[in-house]
């Protein structure tokens, strides 16, 4: 195991995060704060409690998930797409590193950035609403697993993408709708039965549901199924990445 290489990639990626601090930190925090102002304070005060939780507090887990998922994907996809775009990927391919080490470095850094943003948004939310965390450890496990699994997905997108437009395509056309329709701002039980069934095919539902359970002990699906879903999603992404490196798809001729 080339631990020094993992460390080098991780630190190099993190240094970009800190170099562009305003862009990477302030903007997600600002936009989430706006969500709190609009949905929590302005509209939320006119909405009745959802499953015994005030609406402002109810959307906190969903909002964190929304930011964390978006950030994990964009950081990881950009992290591996940029070296491909500017040509520095030659160095990764010629270095004595295995695919696991490359993934650990890039995905680790992207997940870490997303985690930092998630924690900061959670902290911000305390200023706007009264949030209780019933199971802090479970909350952390869900948060970390989400960061890692979506960073893996982002890594795959970054390798697949042939242009900056494509890099934006999947997050914009697939991930954002899945998150918005995944119960970030409502409980699945509030939907008509047909849409409840359809929602069950949305993987994000399981994440948000599990994450919300860690806060309020209310969930749309049993916690065990949520955990199983996220573990399965992570395994799927890992398998895809293993295949990519074995065949050299889109990176090695």
């Amino acid at each position: 195991m080339n631990l020094l290489a993992i460390r080098a990639i991780f630190l190099f990626e993190m240094s970009r995060f800190f170099r562009t601090l305003a862009q990477s930190l302030i903007s997600p925090v600002l936009s989430t704060s706006l969500y709190f102002v609009v949905f929590g304070a302005a509209i939320g005060s006119r909405i009745q409690e959802v499953e015994g939780v005030s609406y402002g507090a109810f959307i906190v887990p969903g909002l964190i998930m929304l930011s964390v998922i978006t950030q994990a994907i964009s950081n990881a996809s950009f992290g591996i797409y940029f070296p491909k775009f500017i040509g520095t990927v030659y160095e990764l391919l010629s270095a004595p590193v295995s695919f696991l080490e490359i993934v650990a470095g890039y995905v680790g850094a992207a997940a870490a950035k997303a985690l930092i943003i998630g924690v900061i948004i959670l902290t911000t939310s305390f200023f706007f609403v009264d949030v209780q965390i019933a199971h802090p450890l479970a909350m952390l496990v869900f948060l970390v697993l989400t960061c890692v699994s979506f960073a893996l997905l982002g890594f795959i997108i970054g390798i697949w993408a042939g242009s900056f437009e494509q890099l934006q395509l999947v997050p914009l056309l697939v991930v954002t709708p899945l998150v918005f329709l995944g119960g970030a701002f409502y409980s699945i039980s509030m939907l008509p039965p047909v849409w409840q069934t359809i929602s069950m095919f949305n993987p994000v539902v399981y994440l948000i549901s599990g994450f919300r359970w860690a806060f309020f002990e209310t969930s749309d699906v049993p916690i065990g199924i949520s955990l199983f879903a996220i573990a399965g999603f992570t395994a799927l992404c890992l398998a895809a990445i293993w295949w990519i490196f074995r065949t050299g798809w889109r990176i090695r001729q």
Binding site: N2, R7, A8, L11, I86, P96
Partner: peptide, 17 residues
């Protein structure tokens, strides 16, 4: 392009273990 000379050289050393 945006990285410092010394950091990019240090990165290469680390990458090679």
């Amino acid at each position: 392009p945006f990285e410092k000379v010394i950091n990019t050289v240090r990165f290469s050393r680390g990458l090679f273990g």
